[in-house]
Design a protein around this nucleic acid. Structure first.
Lengths: 210, 210
DNA sequence: TCGGCAATGTGAATTATATCACATTTTCGT
DNA sequence: ACGAAAATGTGATATAATTCACATTGCCGA
């Protein structure tokens, strides 16, 4: 099953299912139907079953899904049954807010390195104990700290340059917060987080509907 | 043309084209082909032409698109030929980083209100001059400050409650940073920004390819 | 003025994604 | 032990988005 081509959208939905299921666990729900889960996640029930069917059979007919088991299965599918070390490149407003943000650690993502070019920031110790390094030391530290993904929160003008360096350092997963499209070789997977694109989309909908 | 159903993906791409074009303007490029723009944006040239074709004919055959004109046209399409007032709900790490973030104002988005429940924060003046209000005053201040979109950066547990209040206050565009799916009536358009979903997606790709 | 070139705009074809609908399997009550 | 009820898993269908391929159009140089 794992060899069929999986839609990107499926992968994203699996994360959403997982989150919702984790919340349900806390409310002591132990079995859930695709219908109820779908309502909670705002999707079609068949969608959920199809998404899961790409990877196996996880439910019990006539009953539903065991919440706890399904969380474990989804974690397995996504590769979340292990910690992932992250590096933050750019310790400005946004970068430092994210470094302090609890959601990363909660989901198994650990910042083990941080970089900036500002001499005032280099050498400082972050609340999580990580010391900010100069970008010149990127490759060295990334290897030392066994970083597997890089988060770019530099100004847009630096993002491509940093991405190149990350790739050279052997990183092949990048989460890019800078509002530019960065170009990387195929071996590297980039995801973009761009607030203003989302705002533009809202602006469009509000304008168009009025 | 505006009555054909426009793919959501098209709207998002228009933002990306606009950004790229704005950068080109600064480099004194004044005409661009769909091919070159496509390469820069990482999409197919025909895609760009199709996307634009939903809204009209903006190019010159044999020549390309006048960069400046196209930026204006896209702004018109998206409703960005006017300022949009924003409210931030939740002035924690992330909220205050975003309030200070220059990209919003650069693209015509103006924070005119901010809310929190923490008495230590309420009453404080932000760098942009806005004073943090208590969430109890949400409806009143949102109307007073003519806010049209709300950004939710509260803890996940509060997000739905805040969304409800925003809707009651007449807001119909929400950018949700909390890692939950919030439910709103159809009149309201929600976009989600969820870092950990993106990280999960990267984790999947790194795990699957190895 | 005219011919060739370049790049748009767009119908057709392809590919991808989502939904339906139902046969299948399991549980549970009698 | 059996039949009804419930909810999965999935082939078929419908919908949506992307890409192709080319006819069309405007520009420029000789």
């Amino acid at each position: 099953m794992k060899f069929a081509k999986i839609p990107m959208a499926t992968i994203n939905r699996l994360s959403i299912y997982m989150r919702t299921l984790q919340e349900m666990l806390e409310d002591d729900v132990d079995v859930i139907s695709s219908e109820r889960l779908a309502k909670q996640c705002g999707v079609n029930p068949a969608q959920i079953r199809k998404d899961l069917a790409y990877f196996g059979e996880f439910g019990v007919r006539g009953v539903g899904y065991r919440v706890n088991d399904l969380v474990v299965q989804i974690k397995d599918i996504l590769g979340l049954n292990r910690p992932w070390n992250l590096a933050m490149i750019g310790v400005g407003n946004l970068g430092s807010a994210l470094l302090r943000h609890g959601n990363f650690i909660k989901h198994g993502y650990i910042f083990t390195a941080a970089f900036d070019v500002d001499p005032k920031k280099v050498g400082k110790r972050l609340p999580n104990g990580v010391i900010v390094n100069h970008v010149d030391e990127l490759e060295e530290k990334i290897k030392e700290k066994e970083v597997l993904m890089g988060l770019i929160t530099t100004p847009a003008s630096e993002a491509q340059n940093i991405a190149n360096q990350l790739v050279l350092a052997g990183i092949n997963g990048i989460l890019n917060f800078a509002p530019v499209q960065i170009q990387v070789p195929d071996c590297c997977h980039v995801e973009n987080v761009d607030f203003t694109i989302k705002l533009d989309s809202i602006a469009y909908h509000l304008s168009a509907s009025s």
